[in-house]
Simulated scan of single mutants.
Amino acid sequence: MSQEQPEPEGQPQKDAGPDRRNIEIAAWVFSPLLLIIAASVVAVLLGAPWLRSVIVFAVASLSLGLFLFHRPQSWMRVGKIRSAGLMYSGVGTLVLAIIIPVIAASQTPHGQAARAGRGESVVAQAPTTQALVPQRADFYPWAYSVSPLTLRCINSTGYGAGEVVATSSDDREFGVTANAISAERPSLATLRREGSTEDAVDQLSRAGLRLCQGPDRPSFVLIASEGTPPPPPPSPWVYTSDVDEMSDQRISHACTMSTNIIQLEFPYPAQRVTLCVRQHPRWGQDVIVRLERGGQFLCTSYRACTVRVRFDEGEASAYSALEPSDNSSDAIFIQNDARFIANLRRSSRVIVEANFFQAGAQRMNFDTSQFEWPRRER
């Protein structure tokens, strides 16, 4: 009887068959799309621009394929066919990176309007729900004697271009843009308030033109109302008060910090300066300029020095000043305080120029708007 011979060692394994090869071919065919997906995931995770991530992936694949095609590496045996596949992936990804934004842009209103301008047909779309829901906005300053006004765009020729009309609450219709004014539709200027600025008039026209979406597209609707004035900016003045222990009467301060920084010589740092008005029950009313971080005014307590003061755009004036009675050099008291405070009430900006030890004459700018003195109790 014949015995089965054992299979010799080292015999090649059987081919896995065509399935593995077909899967690999399909992976290479769709590899540009796979690179696009990988680049998109990385862009989302890192917060990077999508197009930049796609280009980086494409260039990396193309460069690696070119390198391995011309200079095969022992540590990465891919062969010339797979190297060419890497180059195909890179080129294909670059092509998709160009095509995808173009297709996306053609679906936007701007892209459709551009195609219509080139003579290509664009299917008219039915008005959307969003277009029928009025938007609302308040405008200040309001230039018209009627409020509210409902704006819409007609005969639009492109995004931001068309005829804007306004309808009042009593159904009167006015032209906002010049090409919307006719005998039946008077100019909105007929409702203009006396003293209204051109910018207040133009802002309604600009808002109306933003409603224009292009030909064959519905116009948004804007209900424009008279707005309220914005709140005033916070006061640059800080008001404080305490009690004088020797008289049990109130001491009041109003202080503001300079808007600029003065430069002093070592050892004193560059710093801002404080301007204060003080009402003291024993010493009366004073105007004080004080260095917050040390320094030396060139002034003495027994001999007045001169500082120059300019209120707003007026002429600079000379004021006498003295150091405190304790001979400290980081503050000065401006004399003739009644005159200074009277000018302070009428100004919004004050410049004080004084001389400093080894630093010369320097100017200190103060925002003095909203000054209230004496301040009423809240």
Rank of each mutant, 00 (worst) to 15 (best):
P8I: 06
P18Y: 09
I25C: 01
I25G: 09
V29N: 01
V29A: 10
I37F: 09
V44Q: 10
P49A: 08
I55F: 08
S63E: 02
S63T: 13
S63F: 09
Q73L: 02
V78E: 00
G79W: 07
G79S: 04
S89G: 03
V95T: 05
A97G: 04
A104E: 14
A105F: 15
A105E: 14
Q112M: 14
R118V: 09
G119H: 12
S121G: 09
Q125K: 15
Q130C: 02
P134G: 08
A137I: 11
P141S: 03
A143M: 05
S145N: 15
S147Q: 08
T150P: 08
N155T: 02
T157N: 06
D170M: 02
I181Y: 01
S182Y: 05
A183C: 00
S205W: 00
A207Q: 14
G208Y: 12
D216Y: 11
S219Q: 11
F220P: 01
E226N: 10
P229R: 11
P229W: 04
P231F: 04
S241E: 15
Q249H: 00
I251Y: 06
T274L: 09
C276S: 15
V277L: 12
R282E: 13
R293W: 00
F297A: 08
C299D: 07
T306F: 00
V309K: 08
E313V: 06
D337R: 02
R339K: 09
R349W: 03
V350E: 02
N355Q: 15
E372F: 00
R376D: 12
